[in-house]
């Protein structure tokens, strides 16, 4: 007759190795978190189109999430373009294809590196910020106070931040791409002599709509994921003040992971149409 051992909620059958228990627990926790996050996302989708709309808070959050992230994203974009150009030059020079440098860097940045790196920076800055802010609001019972006073805290806190993150990240990515191209132009001219007009023509000459549109569309999903995960982690924070740090940390880690997963799916979808 099999004997079942219950340890920390996980069921261990007779003959199983004890090392399996943490693994089972991890799986359980993971799927439970996925379900919770999906329910959170579903609640967001149900409430986002319902009045009352918090436009003033949305503008404020857009300013904090978008405009305030601009300097960091701009510096990252510039370095990204400059470094990629400098690093790519020797390989292209071996093939005598240095004239392909602007086009190659432009396609790399606009299709992939620009959106992903900007989204990761965004997850680091905005995701952690939202996670920590909402967690501290939870700990200090501000969210409960809102509910008691008749406000809808989910609408005021979560929806405004997620919508702002969804729409601000594409803007940041577009500007970061443009700055990265300027960095690339400087990188090209460190060891060469290419006019800005020629550089511009070489970049535009090799770009197509299939480079621009999928890359821009996926940034909306990146922004949505970072905002939603940050809000979810902060909104469902526990463990008191210790939970604030945990929420901020896990918002960044899970947000960054979500960016890569969405990117992988986006690439697969894009490859169907190109």
């Amino acid at each position: 007759m099999p004997i079942d051992l219950k340890i920390s909620g996980a069921v261990l059958e007779k003959g199983s190795s004890p090392g399996v228990i943490p693994l089972l627990n991890a799986f359980k926790s993971f799927f439970a978190a996925v379900t919770q996050l999906s329910l959170f996302a579903w609640r967001f989708l149900k409430e986002v189109f319902k009045p009352r709309y918090e436009f003033s808070e949305l503008v404020k959050q857009s300013y904090l999430i978008g405009y305030k992230s601009f300097p960091l994203v701009a510096i990252t974009g510039f370095i990204m373009g400059l470094v990629l150009t400098i690093q790519s030059r020797p390989t292209l020079a071996e093939f005598g294809a240095e004239s392909w440098l602007p086009a190659m860097v432009a396609i790399s940045i606009i299709r992939e590196i620009g959106p992903v790196i900007t989204a990761l920076i965004f997850a680091g800055k905005v995701g952690s910020g939202i996670g920590a802010e909402l967690a501290s609001m939870k700990v200090t019972e501000q969210i409960d106070a809102m509910e008691v006073s008749g406000m809808n805290p989910f609408k005021y806190i979560v929806i405004t931040r997620v919508v702002a993150a969804t729409f601000m990240l594409p803007v940041l990515v577009i500007i970061a791409d443009a700055i990265a191209m300027y960095g690339s132009y400087i990188g090209v001219n460190l060891k060469g002599d290419v006019s800005f007009h020629l550089f511009f023509l070489q970049v535009i000459g090799k770009l197509s709509f299939t480079d621009i549109f999928p890359a821009t569309i996926k940034t909306f999903f990146f922004g949505f994921a970072v905002g939603l995960i940050g809000c979810y982690k902060g909104y469902n924070s526990n463990n008191g003040t210790e939970g604030v740090g945990q929420s901020a940390n896990s918002a960044v880690v899970i947000g960054s992971l979500a960016v890569f997963i969405i990117d992988m799916i986006a690439v697969q979808i894009t490859s169907f149409f190109t």
Binding site: G66, Y67, P170, I175
Partner: peptide
């Protein structure tokens, strides 16, 4: 900020 992004796009 938003206008610059839109114009670039």
């Amino acid at each position: 900020f938003v206008s610059v992004g839109a114009i670039l796009f």
